[in-house]
Nucleic acid binder design. Structure first.
Lengths: 152, 152
DNA sequence: TTCAAGAAAGAAAAAAATTCTGAAAACTAA
DNA sequence: TTAGTTTTCAGAATTTTTTTCTTTCTTGAA
């Protein structure tokens, strides 16, 4: 369960590129295939490595607008929250949703093709969810940084 | 450059699991290896597939606190912005940083081990950046959804 | 009808992952 | 220290996957 320096080196490499071969990794950290293989397998089994995913270029698939969205519910009861949470899971435009402390309840990150799509999403998919009281939108004008790499 | 239904099927599968073999994909979309191979290669070359990454479990590597952070600069000149942008790229705790429209300038997403680490980060790394005027933090209490999958 | 282009199938070769065997190093307990 | 145990790693063999090459099938235009 505790990560030694070799584990960390492997994780740092794999975070950046999930298609690195064991051979590549072995070479970069001066080990043979076997220990690298065993460690990666162990890290997967322990759930430290959660999954391998493919990152697409938003722009190139026509998803040009990112919006941060602060949502406030009518009341914070368990039922209201649970209903909202479940609905969010079914909305593919919502790529992040977190319950937060502060002057509103949820922070969402939405990705859509354009402003017209966002208007539709807002009107027909988000504001109609039961329990939703206030929605405050912030539009991304320029992306400075976006990474899946965690400090380790 | 234009994606047909087969391309989209491949992208949908690969977004969820970058370690699917060509054989697996071929089977799921009823094709042989060759066209799947050719299409994946093309999608990579065109940059539609940007990269393959490994997602780690935040909790299991001790990164227990996520914070959304709204930053306002003293002034919005090009130089001030550029300086801020460059500094952000060097901070591993910042996993997202976007320039947004509205009552503040930047929306950041920060991942750190705990509140003490965040305090340190805030005081010693963020607030000291030149040009930073206001910082407003929202702490994540519960993660509802977090995905790298884009609607396609 | 015939030719050319695009998409897919199948087979062969190259590369990678997986499994197996065993050696070296580190740690434990008498 | 010494013997026993565990952990970590190396090397080789096997299996699986990727990559490359050749061929077939379909479609559309001359």
């Amino acid at each position: 369960m505790t990560l030694d320096e070799t584990d960390k080196k492997i994780l740092r490499l794999l975070q950046e590129d999930a298609h690195l071969t064991l051979k590549d990794i072995a070479k970069q950290i001066n080990l043979s295939l076997t220990p690298v293989h065993d460690r990666v397998k162990r890290l997967q089994q322990e759930g430290i490595i959660e999954k391998y995913v493919t990152i697409l270029n938003k722009k190139k698939i026509g998803q040009n607008l990112t919006v941060y969205c602060q949502v406030t519910l009518i009341k914070q009861t368990h039922d209201t929250s649970e209903g909202f949470n479940q609905s969010i899971l079914n909305l593919p435009e919502v790529v992040e949703c977190n319950f937060v402390s502060g002057s509103f309840d949820y922070m969402l990150k939405i990705i859509v093709p354009d402003m017209e799509s966002y208007h539709q999403f807002h009107q027909q998919k988000l504001s109609v969810l039961s329990g939703v009281s206030l929605i405050h939108s912030f539009f991304v004008m320029s992306e400075v940084k976006s990474t899946t790499v965690l400090p380790i």
